[in-house]
Design a protein around this nucleic acid. Structure first.
Lengths: 111, 111
DNA sequence: CTCTTATATAGATGACTATCTATATGAGGT
DNA sequence: ACCTCATATAGATAGTCATCTATATAAGAG
């Protein structure tokens, strides 16, 4: 993943409504009308946000009839995590990190 | 780390110049004038970007005489990684993830 | 074909942002 | 005190963005 991709993803996540959408999609696919019920925004505004999230690759859309079913794109999300984890690890490695522990125990997640 | 903090960090990282700054600081502390040499922006613009990065907690500043020494705030960066890793893992857990492997082998980083 | 439902697009508006030039602050050096 | 260097702040400007209302598209139902 390149720097420009990361910037695009971060720009998409720079709106708290869109972060909420990502959280809402963690549990699995949801259609636009389901998402709309969870937010206090109008339908066109949600549509705009979903376009941004799809545009950076974080969200996929599956269209079936009238419905648009949105879900997280796991690969993009993991790629983004890898980039960020790499930054955090580089920071650890090139400094002292004198406590003798690796990255794992720092984040608390085995990702 | 709360949703609003994540949005603030993402907003800070939504500019590719600022992502470059974060990358430049991975190797350790740098003063503003060192950073300035690596970018094609004016000094006030860099000052603005550093203020944004400090404002979200990703970067710390240590002032000594005339100089401002900037470095990454490891805790904030790791906290952000944890949040993102958690999202990615939740996505894995609540879907099938039928290949029998954990998050570790997905990201390739032990963070 | 007509009506309803789900979603997208157009256009407007107010807020925010990246960048610049010009200037201020503040620390050392002579 | 004066000059220089490193950095910050002020103010302007052009561009971007989140949100809305109004309207369009497109798919099913009757």
């Amino acid at each position: 993943m390149k720097e420009a991709d990361v910037a695009l993803i971060c720009k998409a996540l720079s709106d708290s409504n869109r972060i909420k959408v990502i959280n809402a999609l963690c549990g699995g696919e949801k259609c636009a009308c389901e998402l709309l019920e969870e937010f206090e925004i109008t339908q066109p505004t949600l549509s705009h946000h979903m376009k941004v999230l799809c545009g950076c690759g974080l969200v996929k859309v599956r269209r079936k009839g009238k419905w648009a079913h949105y879900s997280l794109d796991r690969e993009t999300l993991l790629g983004f995590c890898r980039y960020m984890n790499h930054l955090a690890c580089k920071t650890l490695e090139e400094r002292g990190n004198g406590d003798g522990v690796g990255c794992d125990s720092k984040t608390g997640f085995g990702v």
